[in-house]
Design a protein around this nucleic acid. Structure first.
Lengths: 145, 145
DNA sequence: CCTATAATGATAATGGTTATCGTTATTGAA
DNA sequence: TTCAATAACGATAACCATTATCATTATAGG
């Protein structure tokens, strides 16, 4: 993890009187190494016995409350988490309807501009104040073809 | 429910040797009357004791398997269902981060065209074969401002 | 009318997630 | 450094949406 990212998270947690402990750091580092959101169980598989499942769940809840993680709910009955966009940049998701995997994707600035126009137009009609948006594309991933 | 929609669903179910029974029809009609996806519990509240919760759950599973309903997972630990797009048209979602409600929205043809361009461009780069897409906009709904 | 099969409804079981609680670690003040 | 006060931890129990079970009922076709 870059020193910059580390201090960003540490400072954000401090705002709520929280600490960036080893268990929480391990969760963040595992998510950082992943190319998509991970569930509590998937994190547990990666982190092993060093970080108990109950602690993973609590860390996920606390980090999400502190806006360091964002929850993603593509698969039924399974919450997956990833670093929030203010830490790792804006992106969208490719959701494989075959294997359930979720892949992060970035779109070009010009495409992103088009998306934002659509978002703003649609939200204003509904008197809705948008805070974020994501394009979710369902289909078959490269592995499942 | 229009006779046309009714026969579309009846015929689709018949393909799998399934019947469009009263319980399933009540679920479909409640979803049709709603302006957004509904959970099993929300359906139970609307339908009352006439349709037991266990039957609602099974109807939702069967109708989803038959591609008559589509599941939507914006709220943690809660699956909401709505009529599939081939029955009611393509649309997107406004998800209120305050109250958890989900509202269907339609975008203009020109805006939809822009979205499709972005989807196609992004998917091809990732060797992903898109089957559907949805723009999900998070924010505050008109009631929660 | 009869039989095979679909559908139902009450209930039990499942599984991801959350809450509890006693213990441990860390921070800030004296 | 020592001493609270509070945050964090870890094992376990509880929760709750959802799914499976199974005996009963309804429907369609021969």
């Amino acid at each position: 993890m870059t020193p910059n990212l580390d201090s960003q998270i540490t400072e954000r947690l401090a705002l709520d009187g929280l600490r960036f402990t080893r268990g929480r750091r391990e969760v963040v580092e595992a998510l950082l190494a992943s190319d998509g959101p991970m569930s509590a169980n998937e994190l547990s598989d990666v982190l092993g016995d060093g970080v108990p499942l109950s602690s993973i769940y609590r860390s996920l809840a606390i980090l999400t409350d502190a806006h360091i993680l964002t929850v993603h709910l593509a698969t039924k009955g399974l919450a997956r988490y990833e670093l929030s966009e203010w830490l790792v940049g804006h992106h969208h998701h490719l959701v494989c309807t075959e294997c359930g995997s979720v892949e992060d994707i970035h779109v070009s600035a010009s495409h992103e501009e088009r998306l934002r126009e659509v978002v703003d137009a649609v939200a204003s009609v509904a008197s809705f104040i948008p805070s974020s948006h994501a394009l979710e594309i369902d289909g078959r991933c490269a592995q499942c073809q």
